[in-house]
């Protein structure tokens, strides 16, 4: 690692102030950033650790909306249980030790194209809360490792409307244990949303044809005959674009079956 200083602000205001320095970078749980720093692929002058920020901790539920602080770990979400599909998803991110450090704020801000949380946020129609504003998930996830966040903007919470039915199916990339393909299906009074992670070069995205079919008939059968194009899907040593396209359909069916 290159040398840098590390600061641990205790309040959001201090964190925001610290991050106004353009050479400063936010550090969530560090489970992605620290390995990146070890490879000397990033060279911040200052890391602002968000793990001590009180306002970003805690999970609360009100009016059918679950609000999870940006500094809440995957492990804490896993054991919360008030949005079961989300807790189940969290309980399969990385491994237990990673879950004890990695945070939801860090995950959505990083927007790894194979991460699990972005699928949950997008399918649930979540709202990403920052120190400056609230951003709908549909607008937040812009592309691979790209979000609507401005420089220095911090994800302070994610608000999840709890759906009537939901489920996440993850087909793991067996080495990293990220999603080779992950599909989150959420059914609300307004319809069904299907978000796919791991598959696309564009990052997390919705599968509108499946949403349409499932909004009419929330059953695995409704998906018969539907498939996604392999164009623009990720191809790597773990699977071709065609395989990923196939898995999207399989995982979507399984998510619907498990949710129903």
């Amino acid at each position: 690692m290159y040398a840098f200083d590390i600061e641990r602000p205790a309040t959001l205001a201090e964190a925001v102030a610290a991050l106004s320095n353009e050479d400063a970078q936010a550090l969530g749980g560090g489970q992605t950033l620290i390995p990146t720093l070890k490879q000397r692929l990033a060279s911040p002058e200052k890391l602002i650790s968000l793990t001590g920020v009180a306002e970003m901790k805690g999970i609360s539920s009100s009016g059918g909306v679950l609000t999870i602080g940006g500094g809440v770990t995957h492990g804490e979400v896993a054991s919360d249980g008030s949005y079961k599909a989300l807790s189940d998803l969290a309980s399969n991110i990385g491994d237990p030790a990673v879950r004890n450090r990695g945070t939801i704020g860090g995950s959505v801000a990083n927007n790894d194209p194979s991460a699990c949380y972005p699928a949950a946020a997008l399918a649930s129609g979540a709202t990403i809360v920052t120190n400056a504003r609230e951003i709908a998930a549909d607008d937040f996830f812009v592309g691979m490792f790209e979000t609507a966040l401005d420089e220095g903007e911090i994800v302070t919470a994610v608000k999840f409307p709890i759906p009537e039915k939901a489920n996440y199916q993850k087909f793991v990339q067996p080495a990293s244990r990220f999603a080779l393909v992950g599909v989150f299906v959420a059914k609300t009074a307004d319809g069904v949303r299907v978000a796919v992670t791991g598959a696309s070069n564009e990052g997390v995205h919705r599968w509108s044809a499946a949403e349409e079919a499932l909004s009419k008939d929330f059953s695995a059968k409704a998906l018969d005959g539907l498939s996604v194009s392999a164009d623009d899907l990720i191809a790597d040593l773990h699977g071709s674009a065609e395989y990923r396209a196939h898995l999207v359909a399989v995982m979507t069916k399984r998510a619907v079956e498990a949710a129903a």
Binding site: L27, L47, A97
Partner: peptide, 14 residues
Amino acid sequence: KAVKSCTMFAAEAN
């Protein structure tokens, strides 16, 4: 809590 000590800064364990 179990953590990977290679993926946490000493300063964060203060």
